Simulated scan of single mutants.
Amino acid sequence: MMKKLVLTGAAGRLGSYLREPLSKMCQELVSTDIVDDIGKLYEGESYAKADVAVYDQIAPLLEGADMVVHFGAIVDEKPFEELLGPNFVGSYNVWEAAYQHGLQRVVYASSIHAVGMHKKSDFIGIDAPHKPDTFYGLAKCFSEDLASMYWDKRGLEAVCLRILSCAQVNNTRALGSWLSYDDLIQLVTRAIDTPSVGFSVVYGVSNNDRAPVDNAKASFLGYRPKDNAEQFAEKILAEAPPVDLKDPGQMHHGGPFAAVDLGESGVASMNIVNDKKTT
């Protein structure tokens, strides 16, 4: 069991599902976000309000930690100036603080939007070149390259989880892109407990029949998703409107993010259900 883990973005929807399993992997879990309170804490968990965009707020929390699980960011497309602090500078602050405090590894919530302008018909692997669909996706590219550089130059390991869509399945894209919460937990657990990872990328997607990405070159992480969105296919396809072959959102990996103008919300049209876990 590790001595200490730090989770950023603990107040978010995905963070809410990670807190309990992470608390069982270490003696001390420090959860952090920008809200005043995250409610009842799990055994061994403490909460610290901090802004990842401010180095002096986030860095002290990493002292004595083994690893940091970095999920803290704005999780939508916004004007570049709004994303600059949380999504760009925030990543630098986490990696630099992790290096300064001698952490072994950063586990990072990257996104399919780092490669979102690849065509969905291209069965892309983890070595697909960056092709961001938004400023949000650009921040993921920046953070992945930051992770690669800190491994090459400073020996700080990282696993970048290119999450596709971790939300309830309510559209045709999600039949391929779905990542269940149970598989999310398995993915993060493997990113933590694999003995050596160097710099690694893995797609965060469940074992969907229609998965549009290839994790073969990340198989050493031991991530073997169990859930399959095909269970929802009959209902979703029966209710789906006809495919528009001229819609970039339907033809590219980034979905709606591939279709919006830069700076405009990609989440607005996605009808994401906020089924955040409550303790």
Rank of each mutant, 00 (worst) to 15 (best):
I163W: 03
L138T: 14
S196Y: 13
N87K: 05
E43T: 09
I74W: 05
D76G: 02
L156H: 08
E28A: 04
G44V: 07
I272Q: 10
S111P: 00
P21Y: 06
Q104G: 14
S91Y: 12
D36I: 04
L83W: 02
G39V: 11
D133L: 03
E144M: 07
D214T: 06
A109D: 06
Q100G: 13
L41G: 05
I124L: 05
L175P: 09
L18W: 04
P86Q: 07
E28Y: 09
H252T: 12
Q250L: 07
V94F: 08
I34V: 15
C26G: 08
K276C: 13
V35D: 11
V69F: 02
D244Y: 04
T194G: 05
Q168R: 14
S46W: 00
D133C: 11
I38C: 04
D33C: 11
G176S: 10
L18E: 04
L14R: 11
R19A: 07
M149R: 13
N215P: 07
K49S: 09
V52G: 05
Q104A: 13
Y92C: 12
Y108G: 04
G90M: 09
P132S: 06
S31N: 07
V6I: 14
A50L: 11
G64T: 03
Q57L: 12
A229D: 04
D261M: 00
N215I: 03
V202T: 06
F199C: 09
K277D: 03
R190K: 15
G263L: 01
R190D: 09
K119H: 15
V201K: 08
V52W: 06
S265F: 02
L161G: 02
A11Q: 10
D36Q: 12
A65I: 00
H253S: 08
N215G: 06
G85T: 06
S121R: 14
H113K: 10
C166D: 04
F80R: 07
P195Q: 10
E157P: 04
N208C: 02
S269L: 00
F71Y: 15
T278F: 14
Y108S: 02
F71C: 07
C26H: 00
V267A: 15
D122F: 12
L61D: 05
L83T: 01
A167C: 15
M67G: 00
P256Q: 12
R105I: 01
Q186L: 14
E82R: 10
D214Q: 03
H130Y: 15
F142K: 01
K131R: 15
T278H: 15
G44T: 11
L156G: 01
A128P: 09
V273R: 12
S265D: 08
A174C: 12
D227H: 12
S265R: 01
E43I: 07
V201M: 01
V35M: 10
R13P: 03
F123E: 11
N87S: 06
A259I: 03
G44R: 06
C141P: 00
W151M: 05
P132K: 02
F71L: 13
G198E: 02
N87V: 06
V260T: 08
A50I: 05
L245F: 14
L146E: 08
